[in-house]
Simulated assay, not measured.
Amino acid sequence: MIPREILQKIRRIQIRTSHQVDELLAGNWHSAFKGRGVEFEEVRPYQIGDDVRAIDWNVTARSDQPFVKLFREERELAVQLLVDLSGSQKLGTTTQTKRELVAELGALLSMSAIKNNDKVGLTLFSDGIEKSIPARKGSRHVLRLIRELLYCQPMGVGTDIRFALEHLNRVCKRRTVVFLISDFQDTQYERALKVAARKHDIIPVVITDPREHEMPNVGLVRLQDEETGEAITLDTASSQNRDHFANLYRRECDTRDHLFRRLRLMPIHLETGSDIVEPLHKYFHLRETRA
């Protein structure tokens, strides 16, 4: 039996995101992803003006004349939410935790997909796969996804993005639009991300909290890592400590963003306590423009 407060949270998120979906959609979802899901249909002889990138080199080599591949757009997309539920998602120093932000984002993306007649699935992970729900349609299916985003109690506390991406490649056989939602406080997932990006349309969504990049001056504090359990006492009155904290965070962000650029991935950056619709608007518009 789901506790009443969880049901109330689900209902609040459903009501809030139903308005956001109408605001977000305004043509943005379809135009951003149109043509991303395509299936090979046939080949035909090359004609002047055809995109040379569409040349089928195998057929061309066999026939001694150039042929190009023709594709048809799929009527529906497969959308997968790959969501990090590790211990660090409990952090929240504004009006919401990172996990609450992720739940609202997941609801918004799910409802947007359903309104466009696309299927949406959900995979929750920590240092293992916590739950995997196949892509389906329908409002009842979306409510189940929201419930899992809010209510699922992960067995693990660590983060293993590599394992989650490898699981994605095993279970998703067709090309899928994948929202990889995490704070990316992990390493050694580069190769798995590279493989997944060749097969799927990967969209990294970076979730942060203001206190992760700026330490307040509040004197001595006791800090504990939610994923490792390690605890330290830190003097936040020290400007040297605050600067070191900020520099360490910047280096980690630079490493992550450099990886995204090398793999030609366009990330979305969201912060707790901030609006999520406007960054999505900008992102979808940018995708449409680049496409």
Rank of each mutant, 00 (worst) to 15 (best):
Q185N: 08
L286Y: 14
F33M: 04
C152A: 12
S139M: 10
V178I: 13
T176D: 07
N247I: 08
L193R: 03
I48D: 01
D64P: 05
A197N: 15
Y46C: 00
Q185A: 04
F284Y: 15
G92C: 05
T236Q: 10
H269K: 14
H200D: 05
R175F: 09
C172W: 06
L149M: 11
S132N: 15
A135E: 12
L25I: 11
K98I: 02
V177W: 13
D243A: 10
N58V: 11
L263Q: 11
Q224C: 08
V52S: 04
F260R: 08
V68N: 03
I232M: 10
K173E: 11
K9L: 00
Q47S: 12
T187W: 13
R75S: 06
V221M: 09
E74Q: 15
L122D: 03
H285L: 07
L280F: 11
L223Q: 05
Q153H: 11
T255V: 13
E190Y: 13
R53L: 09
Q65I: 08
E148Y: 15
E104Y: 14
D209L: 12
T159S: 11
R99Y: 03
G219W: 13
M1R: 05
L105W: 09
F184S: 00
Q89I: 01
A107G: 10
D201S: 03
R261Q: 14
W29I: 07
K199R: 15
L122H: 08
V38H: 06
A61T: 14
R211M: 13
L77A: 06
A32F: 12
Y46A: 00
L143R: 12
L223D: 00
